[in-house]
């Protein structure tokens, strides 16, 4: 045995052929996604403009991205609230509900995101419907803006109804107003506009016999369910944008499955928009509560570490 061989054998014996210590990680990544602008829309809604020219070039209204803020982070879906092929940026707005969205809330211009995938999901079906009544609540308002803008550009008459708990939580109000033919605001506490729910205005429009060709609703599950129940007896086509829990967002896992007309569909590739009259909202509500205890652990741990 020569010296070299003895050395080799010695090393092998001591290291026991474990790979430990040989650390080549996946961190060497070609792409990083830089935050170019960060704003707070309300105390707990963050708006981020992110440099992602390849996504901005292809994005369409109604599509979303999957973002993983850090290497240890969760992959979460967020709808694109805006995108600009010219600037090469996309904009997201997130309600800070848990660990990941709060982590995004801390992002400043110049920070980099670990992973950003998109544009995902089927874009909103744009068509000249006639009169489109779009209804948004809470964080849904951010998602609603590019869609109503596209409806308007597509030659529809846009009636937009937006709502939030109180005036301070109304976001994207001016933007949505700027693409509205008719515009209504509601707050639960009456601090602005109509005191009550967005559904009240819709009921009113229907009662007045207004011609409505399409209803588009995005917001809390319960809001979308109520809207769908209102339009069903009148046979008004109703599109809702669902928010099931996702993992990959590309159709690989089925975490996002929703029941549509009794059939299983994937929210990420068959949606996120579906016919509101066919959605099993109760199943979606139950499925979205799957990881509540773990979500609370993650949040508490993150808050304590700060």
């Amino acid at each position: 045995m020569n010296v070299e061989m003895q050395r080799q054998l010695g090393v092998m014996a001591s290291a026991q052929s474990r790979w430990a210590g040989v650390l080549v990680t996946g961190r060497m990544r070609a792409r990083m996604y830089e935050v170019v602008k960060s704003d707070k829309l309300t105390p707990d809604v963050i708006k981020l403009e992110i440099s992602a020219p390849h996504i901005a070039k292809k994005a369409k209204a109604g599509q979303f991205i999957m973002v993983t803020p850090t290497e240890h982070g969760e992959r979460i879906p967020l709808t694109m609230a805006d995108f600009s092929p010219e600037k090469g940026t996309i904009t997201i707005a997130a309600l800070e509900v848990g660990k990941t969205t709060r982590e995004l809330g801390k992002m400043k211009a110049g920070d980099k995101l670990f992973s950003l995938v998109g544009p995902l999901g089927i874009p909103t079906h744009l068509h000249q419907y006639g009169t489109v009544v779009s209804i948004g609540g809470g964080i849904g308002l951010a998602l609603m803006y590019p869609v109503v803008r596209a409806f308007r550009q597509g030659g529809n008459k846009t009636v937009n109804i937006i709502g939030a708990r109180n005036e301070k939580l109304l976001i994207y109000e001016d933007e949505i107003k700027s693409v509205s033919d008719e515009f209504y605001v509601c707050t639960d506490d009456g601090s602005k506009g109509h005191k009550g729910f967005v559904s009240d205005i819709l009921k009113d429009l229907i009662a007045k016999g207004r011609k409505i060709d399409l209803v588009y609703a995005v917001g809390p599950i319960i809001m979308m369910k109520v809207i769908a129940n209102i339009t069903r007896p009148h046979n008004i086509k109703t599109i809702v944008s669902l928010n099931p829990i996702m993992v990959d967002g590309t159709g690989m896992c089925g975490s996002c499955r929703v029941i549509i007309n009794g059939k299983t569909k994937f929210g990420c590739v068959d949606g996120p928009e579906f016919d509101g009259h066919e959605v099993d909202f109760d199943n979606l509500t139950a499925r979205n509560r799957r990881y509540l205890p773990e979500e609370q652990v993650a949040l508490r741990r993150w808050q304590e570490a700060k």
Partner: peptide, 22 residues
């Protein structure tokens, strides 16, 4: 796929050091 992706790709077996739950 969901189970294994959560555990392997997203490292849920190291929750809460990694954020993805299982």
């Amino acid at each position: 796929n969901e189970f294994l992706t959560r555990v392997n790709l997203m490292k849920a077996f190291k929750f809460p050091e990694y954020d993805t739950p299982i």
